Simulated scan of single mutants.
Amino acid sequence: MRQRRRESPVYGDGDGYRDAESVRSMLRSWGQDMDPAESGILPGAEAAGRGYGTGLDVPHADAAAVVGAVVRLLGAPAGPGRRPRGLAELAALSGLPAERFAELRLLAQALVVDEHPSAPIWSAEERLEASSWVAVLIERRGDDGVAALVAELRRSR
């Protein structure tokens, strides 16, 4: 008996932005009945156009600075050539199977990376790298890791 390959509805056509946008859209629909004061989303987040870039109260920074903050929080080796790069290496660092890491990376992109005020000017590759590192942080430290990242980024003000 031949098994059919299961397609994940999250991945769509493989376009990282569209996948993360569908996650953001789904999460926004869940929160439509929520009082905006309780949502944690800063005023103007929806008016920003594509729905990203205003949700985190952190200063503007380039993607490398955000990745550097995550690397420091994880205690990963720093410096060019010393830290893991690429999805396969980061998935291995997370300890998750590749499919689960890809799902967590989409959530990290939708809920953390694309909410950074500088995200709209980052390249797709920069957002992918930042999302991958944030996914490792979430896997290792959960919500506390995201809170620590926001605190670390705020210190640069």
Results as ranks from 00 to 15, higher is better:
E126A: 14
S132P: 10
A108K: 00
P120H: 11
A102E: 04
G142H: 14
A148H: 08
S132E: 04
A108E: 00
R140C: 05
A130C: 05
G142E: 15
S123E: 09
L128I: 07
G142W: 14
A147G: 13
H116Q: 04
E103A: 01
L149A: 09
E139Q: 14
V150R: 12
A124W: 10
L104E: 10
W133G: 12
R141T: 15
A130H: 06
Q109S: 07
H116I: 06
V146R: 07
A148I: 06
A108Q: 01
A108M: 02
E126F: 06
E126K: 12
F101W: 04
G142T: 14
S131Y: 08
Q109K: 11
V146Y: 05
L104G: 01
E125S: 15
A108G: 09
S131N: 10
V134Y: 05
A135D: 02
R140E: 14
S123L: 11
V150K: 13
A148M: 15
E125V: 15
D114A: 10
I121Q: 09
V150Q: 09
S118P: 14
E103I: 00
S118K: 07
L106C: 02
V113D: 03
A130V: 03
G142R: 15
A148W: 02
V136R: 12
V136F: 09
L111G: 08
A148Y: 08
L104T: 02
P117K: 05
A110D: 03
G145M: 10
G142S: 13
L149F: 00
P120F: 07
V134I: 12
R127V: 01
R141K: 14
G145D: 07
D143C: 14
Q109Y: 11
R105N: 03
W133H: 05
D144M: 11
L104D: 04
V134K: 04
A130Y: 05
L149V: 11
E126T: 12
E126I: 14
Q109N: 04
A124G: 11
E139K: 13
A148R: 08
